[in-house]
Computed example of a mutant assay.
Amino acid sequence: MTAALQVAGLRKSYGALEVLTGVDFEVERGSIFALLGSNGAGKTTVVRILSTLLRPDAGTAVVDGHDVTAHPAAVRESISLTGQFAAVDERLSGRENLELIARLRHQKDPRQIADALLERFSLTEAGGRKAATYSGGMRRRLDIAMSLIGDPKVVFLDEPTTGLDPQARVEVWDAVRELAANGTTVLLTTQYLEEAEQLADRIAILHRGRIIANGTLAELKTLLPAATVEYVEKQPTLEEVFFAIVGEDAPVTQEA
């Protein structure tokens, strides 16, 4: 079976500024692929090209078997894109947001689709509330749920946890894992090292317009010298302290 995403020699410039200088990678179907890089590395440019929002200057990009330049309409039918900020209508309830997207995508029985997605993302009890009352994590989960209407084969998540608190980040991570478990291919861009470590089957590091490393976490770790064994007193991280205090398993779906 061919890869879900195939990128070769991708280049893009804005005037004299070269953003992508030859990007190459492949993503297997049903996997989570993290594109890791600092701000300005070109991650969003890659996603915009793969989602047909931007034309490359050179190179090829194939999404679900369709060339992004030659067959953009076919690509758009196969994908969904979630940007850095949740695109929900805060004046509508969670259920109304989902039903609206289902109608816009000409889906049968929008109500049933909305109910199924609310349950899948643990938002059933909050489904009748306006999205304005949702916490950051709830709003982001709703945004991802909206992106799944129409059963896209590939989902692009462009820095999905930007600005979220630790508890909300964990909620989004669980939602991303759920996508891959159901067979959806996920390309995730992030600048958070821990996020890539927690979620990705493979990680590519984008630096100065090129992929400088690509592999599993275990493979990337072999690029460093062998670790030395030392016995030290381990102190809890701030994240461990946070969850110990608030309760890691505390229900969050009803928080505003």
Rank of each mutant, 00 (worst) to 15 (best):
E26H: 06
G15S: 03
A226E: 13
L10G: 11
A196S: 09
T162E: 02
T69P: 00
A204I: 10
L238V: 14
G30R: 01
R210Q: 13
D174R: 15
H71P: 00
V88A: 12
A132N: 04
V68S: 03
A227R: 15
I144W: 10
I113D: 02
E28Q: 14
V47F: 03
A102W: 08
S147Y: 01
P56Y: 06
W173M: 01
A244G: 15
L217E: 01
D64W: 05
L217R: 14
V170E: 13
E230M: 11
A250E: 11
M1I: 11
H207W: 13
F242D: 02
S135R: 14
S78Y: 01
R169E: 03
D201H: 09
L35S: 01
A131G: 09
T237N: 09
K234C: 03
H207T: 10
E239W: 11
A41K: 13
L20M: 06
S31Y: 00
G137Y: 10
L81K: 10
T133C: 03
P152H: 08
H207E: 14
A8C: 03
D109F: 13
E219S: 07
L187P: 06
D109H: 10
R103N: 00
T82C: 15
G65I: 12
N97V: 10
G30A: 06
D64T: 01
E28Y: 01
D64G: 00
E99K: 08
Y134D: 09
E239P: 04
R103S: 09
D57W: 09
D64S: 04
L92T: 10
L53W: 00
E26C: 08
S147D: 05
A244Y: 11
F33H: 07
A86S: 15
A58G: 12
D115Q: 15
A70L: 13
G30N: 02
S135I: 11
S80W: 03
L117C: 10
P56H: 02
T237P: 09
E90Q: 07
V232Y: 08
T189G: 04
L148S: 09
A73F: 02
E171I: 05
V232I: 14
G215W: 08
Q235P: 00
A102L: 09
L164I: 11
G59I: 01
I245C: 00
G215S: 03
T185Q: 07
R169W: 12
G40T: 08
T190Y: 06
V19S: 06
E99N: 05
L117S: 01
T82P: 00
A226R: 14
A70N: 04
R103Q: 11
G137M: 12
P166H: 10
S51A: 14
G9A: 06
E119N: 12
D249Y: 08
T237H: 13
L188V: 10
L35C: 03
R202C: 01
A213M: 10
S80H: 01
P152T: 07
V229H: 13
A58V: 04
N182R: 15
T162F: 07
T228W: 00
A181N: 12
V154C: 07
L157Q: 08
G128I: 05
T190F: 06
D249E: 14
R29M: 00
A213R: 13
V63M: 07
A70P: 02
T216I: 07
A61T: 09
A4G: 10
E99C: 11
D174I: 10
M1T: 07
S122E: 14
D143Y: 05
L35H: 12
Q198E: 12
T185M: 06
L118E: 07
L98F: 08
R210N: 09
Y192E: 05
V246T: 14
